[in-house]
């Protein structure tokens, strides 16, 4: 392991080179935050900045973490500590179709685990993984609050209710680029 400080410049430059528009978008958002010298009050904007960044980039790669760290005058380690704490944030790219099976109690009682297993078999990935072609991500959620439709599967924004293992192949077929 080498120290990341030496590569600081290049990480940000790389980001600006690879994703100029997204980087500009994130920078523009951070410009609207009242960032000052006081680290304590800057920190209050960290979570909203991470939400925005993940919305723009889809995930939080190390370059983006570096950018946020510098703009908010916080350390990289602290940013990573926050990202790894909250389940909403991810530092790995995830598939274009985010298949999330609700595994809240109501869905569990109605057999959501069988649905997860079926997706896992059909897509040949485990829970928390993205398929090799980058199309599908399979995850589980803790209750989306649509317990009357249990078991519930969300594919991006679309909600499927009363899902049985037999419906899984159709749900996958519905995912068209």
């Amino acid at each position: 392991m080498t120290c990341c400080c030496e590569k600081t410049e290049s990480a940000l430059e790389k980001l600006a080179r690879l994703e100029p528009e997204k980087t500009a978008q994130l920078n523009a958002f951070i410009d609207t935050l009242p960032i000052g010298k006081d680290i304590e009050s800057n920190r209050a904007h960290l979570i909203i900045a991470l939400h925005q960044a993940q919305g723009i980039f889809g995930y939080l790669p190390s370059e983006v973490q570096q950018l946020i760290a510098e703009r908010l005058k916080l350390t990289r380690s602290e940013i990573y500590g926050v990202i790894s704490f909250y389940s909403y944030f991810t530092d790995k790219p995830i598939g274009r179709f985010k298949i999330n099976v609700c595994c809240g109690t109501a869905c569990f009682v109605k057999g959501a685990n069988l649905v997860v297993e079926q997706f896992s078999r059909e897509l040949n990935i485990k829970e928390g993984e993205t398929s090799a072609d980058g199309r599908f991500f399979l995850g589980v959620l803790r209750c989306v609050g649509a317990c009357s439709l249990a078991p519930v599967v969300m594919v991006n924004e679309r909600v499927y209710g009363n899902v049985t293992p037999a419906m899984v192949s159709q749900i996958i077929a519905d995912c068209k680029d």
């Binding site: 920190r43 960290l46 979570i47 939400h51 704490f85 909250y86 389940s87 944030f89």
Partner: peptide, 25 residues
């Protein structure tokens, strides 16, 4: 409005406060 980011423990009031402060909850 302040947004959570998916941590059940943040329902506990001191954890919630830390989360608003931008820290681990």
């Amino acid at each position: 409005l302040k947004y959570g980011a998916g941590a059940f423990v943040c329902g506990e009031e001191t954890a919630l406060i830390h989360s608003i402060e931008g820290k681990r909850g």
